[in-house]
Design a protein around this nucleic acid. Sequence first.
DNA 1: TGTCTTATCAACCGCAAGGTTGAACAAGGA
DNA 2: TCCTTGTTCAACCTTGCGGTTGATAAGACA
Lengths: 118, 118
Amino acid sequence: MDDQLNRVFSALADPIRRDIVARLAVADAGVNELAEPYDVSVQAVSKHLKVLEEAGLVSRTREAQRRPVHLEAEVFDLMTKWIERYRRQAEERYRRLDDVLAEMDPEQTRPDTQRGVS
Amino acid sequence: MDDQLNRVFSALADPIRRDIVARLAVADAGVNELAEPYDVSVQAVSKHLKVLEEAGLVSRTREAQRRPVHLEAEVFDLMTKWIERYRRQAEERYRRLDDVLAEMDPEQTRPDTQRGVS
DNA sequence: TGTCTTATCAACCGCAAGGTTGAACAAGGA
DNA sequence: TCCTTGTTCAACCTTGCGGTTGATAAGACA
């Protein structure tokens, strides 16, 4: 589960792979087709697809000689859940901090007495 | 903007850095404190913090000798926006595909005549 | 059968990333 | 002033990643 997160985040850390995902959101495509816009070899793109596949972001089926690549959008949930969890937790902290400040003597809640809350 | 995405995604691709983010969601902390649970040197953790800072995920202020690290949760939005955009786009595709199938003659929409839609 | 297309495998290269150790810097406190 | 604490800088090592080229596999079709 943690490995899965590793794979998904590092898969999307590469700009070419992010772009591939973006294009697959529009339509399935083969390796050659996908490789066309970039100035790297088809083999390099094939490796990128392998990374995306191992992250569960993409699947390949056979169709004659072609192997159309298909986006598996469910994996996104894994990331958004992780992100939202800590985002919410952090926001909760700030909210509580605000409450504390609100209960304090106004003299002590002037902006220049707060540390980096922005 | 694309660079920022690179930095954020690859910052979170490392399990130690993700864990640091998780802990900072609970409370600010100094480098030594943060390094304690892992069996790597403090310097290594200091490098991790630099990566997180350059991704905009974290900020440091000075407080006596200490330099408390603070989570900046806004950057998460950048990621969730990127993710949601393509997730939605992909889901829209499937919805349209379903419509097409629904309009077809039932004879031709039997499972074994569809290609990997699962 | 041979051949064309599509895609992957294998071996290699350069470089950045994560780790280490040792030194240096910044800011109290004795 | 000197010492201690907290943190970063610098140099180095090793590994993994993205890229290359060349060979190979799997189907379609003459």
